[in-house]
Structure formats: structure tokens, C-alpha cells
């Protein structure tokens, strides 16, 4: 039982919170800007490597580099929107989807040129797990969970209580009516990209600190993040969190029934099942 908790459930929840941070971004873009953002995984990769760059250039500890990376990735996400996606706004959305697939490749290749393709790590310190009753948790795992909790709580409070948070929800809910109410479309779009970029960086950073940094890590995680967003319900932040945790746990537990190389196929199977059985997801999101 202890073994089950510590070898499957704990890693599943940690992976799940990483997916959740990525899936929130995907669900916000899908819900508010109305397209599937296929550069999202690579945006997370960029954030992770920007944090690595900040540790090297500014001499920061990894966790101190995280806010810097979140800010830079937020700017990067907005810059990509301004340079590449904005011209496509008045055209069919699927063109932006195609463009984002190319942006993902571009981001990945920049990381590969700057940092190389060999795996890297934030630090060489060996973190020992501490016992909490029967649970064994490493400090970085606790930090990942705490960070996810803090970011999700902040975001939910922002969306629920602030004027601009409500404007984002209104755009997601009924864009025409939001415009009739005088909501500034460009302002909401800008804000969305900032939030999404910062969360993607946090997601990539946590992925890097709990495993290692590879240039393909974001791309590989993207399928799981998309599955989490659809499972939770497109446009639903709380759904993306639940979906992320479910996908993370399912992947870790899948090794009990299928050979471990197929772990990363779990998300795909869940995605197809949810599209087949309940495309609106657990929390009744949008179906585009």
C-alpha cells in the first residue's frame, strides 16, 4: 500500500499538476481565443530553458529564476501573438492552429540551437525524500504542488473577482455580447497571452526540475496537456486542473496494466474516449 502511494500516486499527482499548469493555458486559449494552441508544449520548454538561462546568467537559484522565466515567457507568448497570430485573427481559426504548429517547431529549434540537444539539469543536488507519515516526498515535489496550488488559487480568484478576470470569462462565454458591453478585445487577448505564457513557463520549469531538461519535453507533454484540457471541459480552468491530475495519475498507474513504453499513449486513449463519450468534458466545457 505504501509502495503504491509512493511509487504511483505521488508521482502521478506531481506529473498531474505539471500537466494542469499546461492544460490551463491550453483551455484559456481554446476558450477565449478559440483555437487549439499547438505551440503550447514548446512554450513550456522555452520557459524551462529561460529559467536555466537565468540561473546561469544572473546566478540565481532555480526557484528564484522561475519568476524571471515566467515574466520572459509571458512576453514571449505575447510577442508571438503580435508577430504571427494577430494577422490571422480575421481569417478562419484553423490557419492560426497551423501557424501555431510551426511556431512550436521554431521555438524548439531555437532552444536546440542555443542549449543543444543533450539533457540538462537545474542543479546537481541530490534531493532526499522526507517522510510525512507513510508518504515520502522530495522537497521539489512539495514545492511543485505548492506552486501549482498557489497559481491555480490566484488565477481562480482573479477570474472570479477582478474586473478583467470577469472580462476574460465574458469573452470566453459570449464574445459578441462582451464586445457589446464594451470589453476591449485586444486587451483581453493581451492579458490572456501574458497569463498563459507565465503558466506555461511554470509548467515547463516544474517538469524540468522533477526530471531533466530536454528540448522535446514540452512537445511530448503537449498531448497529455491537451487531453487534460478536453477531459476537464474546454474553457474550464478548474476542469483543466482536475483533468491534469487524472491524466497524470492515469499515466503513472498505466504501467500496472500495460508495458511501460506505452505510458505516454494513455493520454491519447483517454482523449479519444472522452471525445467519443462526453466531448464537453467533466465540467461541461465548450465543444468547438
Amino acid at each position: 500500500m505504501m509502495e503504491f502511494l509512493n511509487f504511483y500516486v505521488v508521482p502521478g499527482i506531481v506529473t498531474g499538476s505539471i500537466y494542469a499548469l499546461g492544460a490551463i493555458g491550453i483551455t484559456l486559449i481554446f476558450g477565449i481565443l478559440r483555437f487549439g494552441h499547438f505551440a503550447h508544449g514548446d512554450l513550456a520548454t522555452s520557459g524551462a530553458y529561460l529559467a536555466l538561462g537565468a540561473t546561469a546568467l544572473l546566478g540565481l537559484t532555480p526557484w528564484a529564476a522561475l519568476p524571471v522565466a515566467m515574466l520572459l515567457t509571458a512576453l514571449l507568448a505575447y510577442g508571438i501573438h503580435r508577430l504571427f497570430y494577430r494577422h490571422l485573427e480575421s481569417r478562419p481559426k484553423i490557419l492560426t492552429v497551423i501557424a501555431s504548429l510551426g511556431i512550436g517547431m521554431m521555438l524548439r529549434s531555437v532552444v536546440q540551437v542555443v542549449w543543444g540537444v543533450d539533457p540538462l539539469a537545474y542543479g546537481s543536488g541530490i534531493a532526499r525524500a522526507q517522510a510525512f507519515g507513510p508518504l515520502m516526498l522530495r522537497p521539489r515535489e512539495i514545492a511543485t504542488l505548492a506552486l501549482t496550488l498557489a497559481l491555480v488559487a490566484t488565477l481562480l480568484a482573479f477570474l472570479r473577482y477582478s474586473k478583467w478576470g470577469k472580462a476574460m470569462r465574458a469573452m470566453s462565454d459570449n464574445p459578441d455580447l462582451a464586445r457589446l458591453c464594451g470589453v476591449d478585445n485586444d486587451g483581453v487577448t493581451r492579458l490572456t497571452w501574458f497569463i498563459v505564457g507565465a503558466l506555461a513557463a511554470a509548467s515547463g520549469f516544474c517538469l524540468g526540475i522533477n526530471t531533466e531538461l530536454t528540448t522535446m519535453m514540452g512537445w511530448s507533454a503537449m498531448l497529455s496537456m491537451f487531453a487534460a484540457a478536453v477531459l476537464g471541459g474546454v474553457g474550464r480552468v478548474e476542469g483543466a486542473v482536475v483533468g491534469g491530475l487524472v491524466i497524470g495519475l492515469a499515466e503513472e498507474l498505466s504501467v500496472l496494466v500495460v508495458p511501460s513504453p506505452y505510458k505516454s499513449a494513455t493520454a491519447f486513449v483517454i482523449l479519444l474516449a472522452i471525445l467519443l463519450l462526453r466531448p464537453q468534458g467533466i465540467f461541461k466545457g465548450k465543444v468547438l
Binding site: K166, L177, C181
Partner: peptide, 22 residues
């Protein structure tokens, strides 16, 4: 508008609030 004239996923109070967004 004739159709889709409320924010369905927002509360009544929030709908009114959106009316006063400006």
C-alpha cells in the same frame, strides 16, 4: 440582441456587472 443575449456561465449579478463594464 435577440439570441445569446446573456453570459450563460456567469451569475445574474455578474451579467449586470458586465453591462456596466465601461
Amino acid at each position: 440582441p435577440q439570441v445569446d443575449n446573456v453570459f450563460r456561465e456567469m451569475t445574474v449579478h455578474e451579467n449586470l456587472e458586465m453591462g456596466a463594464f465601461l
